[in-house]
Simulated assay, not measured.
Amino acid sequence: MITMDDIVREGHPMLRTVTKEVPIPPTKEDQETLKEMLQFIKNSQDEELAQKYNLRPGVGLAAPQLGLDKRMLAIHVEDLKGRLYSYGLFNPRIVSHSVEGGYLSGGEGCLSVDREVPGIVPRHARVTVKAFDLEGNEVKLRLKGYPAIVIQHEIDHLNGVMFYDHINKENPFYVPENAKAVDQE
């Protein structure tokens, strides 16, 4: 079982690494790791389990956060309408995105970052992602709003990018012209 002790923290070189593609079909070991990653996120959202195992609540986890040089991520998140987006993905890539931007009004956080980093993190309001699911089947996901922000955050991890890299250094609360807060729609 993955715990908070398994999560590498800010400053770890793996968080700045562009990760390697996972061979498809995935190995049993990679499938098990990805299932565990998804279970960790689900457990972190369960108050009882989070307290029992001292987990910080999260909505996504990428393999580099476990020190793994693999293009794997898990998300488990609800949109504002309560629709659940729960995926374990191999080799996800954004194949198209909206011109319109989106961001979370309260900024973003990260299980690998143990501090508050105030500021607007500009993202795309909508993205289309191609990837392989837990069984190795190709999937195409169209995400908008909060789930789109979450998957972009996790894909960034696969490319060695941290969320605060996107924050405007001179004006952390600068909102780009074509962007709106996706958590206030």
Rank of each mutant, 00 (worst) to 15 (best):
I2G: 02
T3R: 08
D5G: 00
L15C: 09
V18R: 13
K20D: 12
P23F: 04
T27P: 04
K28N: 08
E29P: 05
L34M: 13
L34S: 05
E36D: 14
M37R: 08
Q39H: 12
F40H: 08
I41W: 08
D46Y: 07
E47A: 13
E48C: 00
A50Y: 11
A50R: 13
Q51G: 15
Y53T: 00
L55Q: 01
P57G: 04
P57E: 06
V59N: 01
L61E: 02
A62C: 03
P64V: 03
P64N: 06
L66H: 05
G67W: 00
R71M: 03
R71Q: 12
R71P: 01
H76I: 02
V77Y: 06
S86Q: 15
Y87R: 06
L89C: 05
N91V: 05
R93K: 15
R93L: 10
V95N: 06
S96C: 07
G101R: 02
G102V: 08
L104H: 03
S105V: 10
G107N: 06
D114H: 11
P118H: 12
G119M: 07
R123F: 07
A125W: 10
V127Q: 06
V127C: 06
K130T: 14
A131F: 07
F132K: 03
F132T: 05
L134N: 13
E135K: 15
G136P: 10
G136C: 09
G136S: 11
K140W: 01
L141C: 10
K144F: 09
G145Q: 09
P147Y: 04
A148R: 12
V150Q: 02
I151F: 03
Q152G: 06
I155W: 03
H157K: 07
G160S: 04
M162V: 14
F163C: 04
Y164M: 11
E170S: 13
E177M: 12
K180G: 09
K180H: 15
A181I: 09
